[in-house]
Amino acid sequence: MQRKYNPQLTYWLLVLPALLAMAVFYFYPVSRVLWMSVTIPEPGLGNFAQLANSHSINRMLWTTLRISLISTALTLILGYVVAYVITHAEDRRKRLLFMAVLASLWISVLVRAFAWFALLRSDGLINQMLMGLGITDTPLPMMWNEFSVLVGIVHAMLPLAILPLYSGMQSIDPRLVAAARGLGANRRGAFWRIFFPLTLPGVFGASILVFIYALGFYVTPALLGGGRKMMIAEYIKVQILEVVNWGAGSMLASVLLIFIVVTLAIVSRLVDLRKLFGAA
């Protein structure tokens, strides 16, 4: 047993295996993608010129951005309501609601997309029900379009938004709202003037989280989109594995990577990233 050791040094030694492993097996592969984007098919920024020249890439990026933004907004609105109610529920209900959120967070996204697949098809369960009840004669087209992609993404992202929103709301001193009520504000006024502004940092953090995950989402859009709504992750996969256009594929992966890193770098001045990703 050694008595004298330099504690700082030993603690660094504890971190070292993880850092080394991640450097070699995580960060090196990621940097390989950047490297590919400027070396294949020939060295230079030729691949990145496609961002300006290629209509399909532009349209695909626009689709990705639009779907990500819309689903982020929807997720935040729905998630806010849920987080609000969980925060204000009595303990037993709170636990129940919380369990439901956690369960849906951890169930595989593939399984969840598959479930929507079974529900939304023309011949799916929702249409069977609607037609059985006589609400509609012809099946509603809910699948293979932007609607199904949005439903799938919002469903996948909801728990990711609820958790940081909830942890933000929970840290608000309930006496503040009570004081406002005591001073004569009605419920609505107390909410909008006191409670809501205090939750804005949480809303901001949750939006960033959801937006970033939605941008790079593969499984759900690929399964529910029906081709027309191809988002960037699926496009990258097609370019790499099917079309064998590695230049475009790695370029887009790099764009996605750089965009996310830059966004997070800016955001990190306003939000504690460790808390944000740790809350989920």
């Binding site: 098809r121 023309s122 011949d123 799916g124 099946p139 699948m143 293979w144």
Partner: peptide
């Protein structure tokens, strides 16, 4: 197959 079968 499923697009046609399901009437999509």
């Amino acid at each position: 197959q499923s697009l046609l079968r399901d009437g999509e």
